[in-house]
Amino acid sequence: NPITQSQFVPLGEVLCCAISDMNTAQIVVTQESLLERLMKHYPGIAIPSEDILYTTLGTLIKERKIYHTGEGYFIVTP
Protein backbone atom coordinates (compact mmCIF):
# COMPACT_ATOMS: atom_id res chain seq x y z
CA ASN A 1 0.00 0.00 0.00
CA PRO A 2 1.42 3.37 -0.94
CA ILE A 3 1.53 5.86 1.87
CA THR A 4 -0.10 9.18 1.12
CA GLN A 5 2.24 11.95 2.03
CA SER A 6 0.95 15.18 3.42
CA GLN A 7 2.91 18.36 3.69
CA PHE A 8 3.62 19.76 7.10
CA VAL A 9 2.90 23.45 7.38
CA PRO A 10 3.48 25.09 10.77
CA LEU A 11 0.30 26.30 12.45
CA GLY A 12 1.71 29.82 12.76
CA GLU A 13 2.18 30.01 9.01
CA VAL A 14 -1.38 28.83 8.35
CA LEU A 15 -2.74 31.36 10.87
CA CYS A 16 -0.80 34.20 9.21
CA CYS A 17 -2.19 33.23 5.80
CA ALA A 18 -5.74 32.98 7.16
CA ILE A 19 -5.46 36.31 9.03
CA SER A 20 -4.05 37.99 5.92
CA ASP A 21 -6.90 36.62 3.75
CA MET A 22 -9.50 37.70 6.29
CA ASN A 23 -7.93 41.19 6.64
CA THR A 24 -8.02 41.57 2.84
CA ALA A 25 -11.67 40.48 2.77
CA GLN A 26 -12.38 42.89 5.67
CA ILE A 27 -13.61 40.04 7.87
CA VAL A 28 -13.12 40.67 11.60
CA VAL A 29 -10.53 38.19 12.88
CA THR A 30 -11.40 36.77 16.29
CA GLN A 31 -10.29 33.42 17.65
CA GLU A 32 -13.74 32.05 16.78
CA SER A 33 -13.82 33.41 13.22
CA LEU A 34 -10.26 32.19 12.71
CA LEU A 35 -11.21 28.63 13.73
CA GLU A 36 -14.23 28.78 11.40
CA ARG A 37 -11.95 29.96 8.57
CA LEU A 38 -9.52 27.09 9.19
CA MET A 39 -12.32 24.51 9.11
CA LYS A 40 -13.85 25.93 5.93
CA HIS A 41 -10.79 26.90 3.88
CA TYR A 42 -8.09 24.52 5.09
CA PRO A 43 -9.61 21.04 4.82
CA GLY A 44 -7.42 18.33 6.23
CA ILE A 45 -5.73 20.58 8.78
CA ALA A 46 -5.86 19.42 12.37
CA ILE A 47 -7.96 22.12 14.04
CA PRO A 48 -6.05 23.40 17.09
CA SER A 49 -7.55 23.47 20.56
CA GLU A 50 -8.41 26.91 21.97
CA ASP A 51 -5.29 26.74 24.19
CA ILE A 52 -2.97 25.96 21.28
CA LEU A 53 -4.60 28.65 19.13
CA TYR A 54 -4.26 31.24 21.92
CA THR A 55 -0.61 30.30 22.57
CA THR A 56 0.29 30.34 18.86
CA LEU A 57 -1.38 33.74 18.36
CA GLY A 58 0.59 35.01 21.38
CA THR A 59 3.83 33.73 19.84
CA LEU A 60 3.03 35.41 16.50
CA ILE A 61 2.41 38.68 18.37
CA LYS A 62 5.77 38.35 20.19
CA GLU A 63 7.46 37.66 16.82
CA ARG A 64 5.78 40.84 15.51
CA LYS A 65 4.04 38.96 12.69
CA ILE A 66 0.55 39.91 13.86
CA TYR A 67 -0.97 42.39 16.27
CA HIS A 68 -4.25 42.54 18.15
CA THR A 69 -6.59 45.48 18.66
CA GLY A 70 -10.13 45.76 19.96
CA GLU A 71 -11.13 45.11 16.34
CA GLY A 72 -9.37 41.77 15.99
CA TYR A 73 -6.07 40.37 14.74
CA PHE A 74 -4.10 41.94 11.91
CA ILE A 75 -0.96 41.14 9.92
CA VAL A 76 1.98 43.44 10.61
CA THR A 77 2.83 45.17 7.36
CA PRO A 78 6.50 46.09 6.91
Results as ranks from 00 to 15, higher is better:
Thr56Met: 11
Met22Cys: 01
Pro10Leu: 14
Cys16Asn: 04
Arg37Lys: 05
Ile3His: 08
Gly12Phe: 08
Asp21Gln: 05
Pro2Phe: 15
His68Glu: 13
Leu60Ser: 02
Gln26Arg: 10
Val29Trp: 01
Thr59Ser: 10
Gln5His: 13
Gln7Ile: 06
Glu36Asp: 12
Thr30Ser: 07
Val76Trp: 13
Gln31Val: 14
Leu53Tyr: 06
Asp21Gly: 03
Gln26Leu: 03
Gln31Cys: 14
Ile66Thr: 01
Tyr54His: 11
Cys16Arg: 07
Glu36Asn: 06
Ala46Gln: 06
Ala18Ser: 05
Lys65Gln: 06
Thr55Leu: 10
Pro10Val: 09
Cys16Gly: 02
Gln26Gly: 11
Phe74Ala: 11
Glu71His: 05
Leu53Lys: 00
Thr77His: 07
Lys40Val: 11
Gly12Tyr: 09
Gln5Arg: 10
Met39Thr: 11
Thr24Glu: 09
Cys17Lys: 15
Glu63Gly: 04
Glu32Phe: 04
Val9Gly: 11
Ala46Trp: 04
His68Val: 08
Thr4His: 13
Cys16Ser: 06
Ile52Ser: 09
Ala46His: 07
Gly12Ser: 15
Phe74Pro: 01
Gln5Trp: 08
Asn1Cys: 10
Glu50Met: 15
Ser49Gly: 08
Tyr73Asn: 03
Ala46Val: 12
Ala46Cys: 15
Gln26Ser: 10
Thr24Pro: 00
Ile75His: 07
His68Lys: 11
Val29Ile: 01
Thr77Ser: 12
Val14Ile: 15
Glu36Pro: 03
Pro10Asp: 11
Leu60Met: 03
Gly44Ala: 10
Ser6Arg: 12
Lys40Phe: 09
Ile61Ala: 05
Val76Arg: 14
Met22Trp: 00
Thr24Asn: 13
Ser49Met: 04
Pro43Asp: 06
Pro43His: 12
Leu35Gly: 07
Pro2Gln: 14
Leu15Phe: 06
Cys17Phe: 06
Phe8Glu: 13
Ser33Gln: 02
Thr55Val: 09
Glu50Gly: 13
Leu11His: 02
Pro78Val: 13
Cys17Trp: 11
Tyr42Cys: 07
Leu35Gln: 14
Thr77Arg: 13
Ser49Tyr: 04
Thr59Tyr: 08
Asp21Pro: 01
Pro2Lys: 12
Glu32His: 04
Pro10Tyr: 09
Gly12Trp: 13
Gly12Gln: 15
Ile47Tyr: 05
Val28Thr: 15
His41Thr: 09
Leu53Gln: 02
Ile47Arg: 08
Leu34Val: 03
Phe8Leu: 10
Ala46Phe: 07
Phe8Val: 09
Gly70Cys: 12
Ile45Gln: 09
Thr77Asp: 10
Gly70Trp: 04
Pro78Ser: 13
Tyr67Glu: 09
Glu13Asp: 11
Arg37Ser: 06
Pro10Cys: 12
Tyr73Ala: 03
Asp21Arg: 05
Ile45Phe: 09
Thr56Ala: 08
Phe8Asn: 15
Pro48Phe: 05
Thr77Lys: 12
Gly70Phe: 07
Val76Met: 14
Val9Arg: 14
Thr56Tyr: 07
Val9Ile: 14
Leu57Ser: 01
Leu15Pro: 00
Gln7Gly: 10
Thr69Ser: 13
Tyr42Lys: 15
Ile19Asn: 00
Ile52Val: 13
Cys17Pro: 01
Gly12Leu: 12
Leu15Cys: 09
Thr77Met: 09
Arg64His: 13
Tyr67Lys: 13
Ser6Thr: 15
Thr69Gln: 05
Gln5Met: 14
Tyr73Gly: 09
Gly70Met: 05
Ser33Leu: 04
Ala46Ile: 12
Arg37Trp: 13
Leu15Ala: 04
Thr4Asn: 15
Met39Glu: 12
Lys40Ser: 12
Thr24Ile: 10
His68Trp: 15
Val29Met: 00
Thr30Cys: 03
Cys16Thr: 13
Ile19Pro: 00
Tyr67Thr: 09
Thr55Gly: 14
Ala18Trp: 03
Tyr67Gly: 06
Thr55Cys: 11
Ile75Tyr: 10
Leu11Glu: 02
Gly44Leu: 07
Ile19Ala: 00
Tyr73Pro: 00
Gly58Thr: 14
Leu38Tyr: 02
Ile3Gln: 11
Thr24Cys: 14
Asp21Cys: 03
Glu71Ile: 04
Thr69Pro: 03
Thr30Ile: 01
Ile27Gly: 02
Phe74Lys: 14
Ile47Gly: 04
Leu35Cys: 06
Val29Phe: 00
Val76Asn: 11
Thr4Arg: 08
Phe8Gly: 14
Leu38Trp: 01
Asn1Tyr: 05
Pro10Glu: 06
Ile66Gly: 00
Ile52Cys: 10
Asp21Phe: 05
Thr59His: 11
Arg37Ile: 04
Thr59Gln: 12
Tyr73Arg: 01
Lys65Asp: 01
Gln5Tyr: 08
Thr30Lys: 02
Glu63Asp: 07
Phe8Trp: 09
Asn23Asp: 02
Val9Asn: 07
Glu13Ile: 03
Glu32Cys: 05
Val14Gly: 03
Asn1Gln: 03
Ile45His: 07
Pro10Met: 11
His41Asp: 10
Leu57Gln: 01
Leu60Gly: 00
Gln26Thr: 04
Ser6Cys: 10
Pro78Gln: 09
Gln7Met: 13
Gln31Gly: 11
Ile61Asp: 01
Pro10Asn: 15
Val29His: 00
Tyr54Pro: 05
Val76Glu: 10
Tyr73Ile: 02
Phe8Thr: 07
Glu32Ala: 11
Pro2Glu: 03
Ala18Glu: 10
Cys16Met: 15
Val9Ser: 13
Pro48Ile: 04
Glu32Pro: 05
Leu11Asn: 00
Thr24Val: 08
Pro78Arg: 08
Met22Leu: 05
Ile19Phe: 01
Ile45Trp: 06
Val14Phe: 10
Ser49Lys: 07
Thr4Lys: 14
Glu71Gly: 10
Gly70Arg: 10
Glu63Gln: 12
Gly70Lys: 10
Tyr42Thr: 08
Tyr73Asp: 03
Ile61Trp: 02
Ile27Cys: 04
Pro10Lys: 14
Glu71Tyr: 03
Leu34Asn: 00
Glu32Met: 06
Tyr67Ala: 08
Lys40Gly: 11
Ile61Thr: 07
Val14Trp: 09
Gln7Val: 12
Gln7Arg: 08
Thr30Tyr: 01
Pro10His: 14
Ile47Phe: 11
Leu53Ala: 01
Thr59Met: 11
Leu11Thr: 03
Cys17Tyr: 08
Ile19Glu: 02
Glu50His: 15
Tyr42Pro: 07
Phe8Lys: 07
Phe8Met: 14
Glu50Leu: 11
Pro2Cys: 11
Asp51Cys: 05
Tyr42Leu: 05
Pro48Gln: 02
Ile45Ser: 09
Gln31Phe: 10
Val9Pro: 15
Pro2Asp: 04
Gly12Asp: 13
Pro43Tyr: 08
Ile61His: 02
Gln5Thr: 15
Ser6Val: 12
Asp51Gly: 10
Pro48Val: 03
Asp21Thr: 06
Gly72Lys: 05
Ser49Pro: 06
Lys65Gly: 02
Thr69Leu: 02
Arg37Thr: 08
Pro10Arg: 13
Gln31Glu: 08
Tyr73Phe: 04
Leu35Met: 13
Pro43Lys: 08
Leu60Val: 01
Thr59Trp: 14
Gln5Glu: 13
Thr77Gln: 07
Tyr73Trp: 06
Ile61Leu: 12
Asn1His: 08
Gln31Lys: 11
Gln7Trp: 06
Leu15Glu: 01
Thr24Ser: 12
His41Phe: 09
Val14Leu: 14
Asn23Lys: 01
Val28Ala: 12
Gly58His: 09
Pro43Ala: 05
Gly12Asn: 12
His68Thr: 12
Val14Met: 15
Cys17Gln: 15
Pro43Ile: 03
Tyr67Val: 12
Ile75Gln: 12
Leu34Ile: 10
Thr56Leu: 09
Glu32Trp: 03
Cys17Thr: 14
Leu11Phe: 08
Thr4Asp: 06
Val76Cys: 12
Ile27Asn: 02
Val9Thr: 14
Ile19Arg: 00
Thr77Pro: 13
Gly72Leu: 00
Leu15His: 00
Leu53Glu: 01
Gln7Asp: 13
Ile3Ser: 14
Tyr67Phe: 06
Ile47His: 05
Arg37Tyr: 12
Ile27Gln: 08
Ala25Asp: 14
Asp51Arg: 09
Thr77Cys: 06
Thr69His: 07
Val76His: 12
Tyr42Met: 06
Leu57Tyr: 03
Val9Trp: 14
Phe74Met: 15
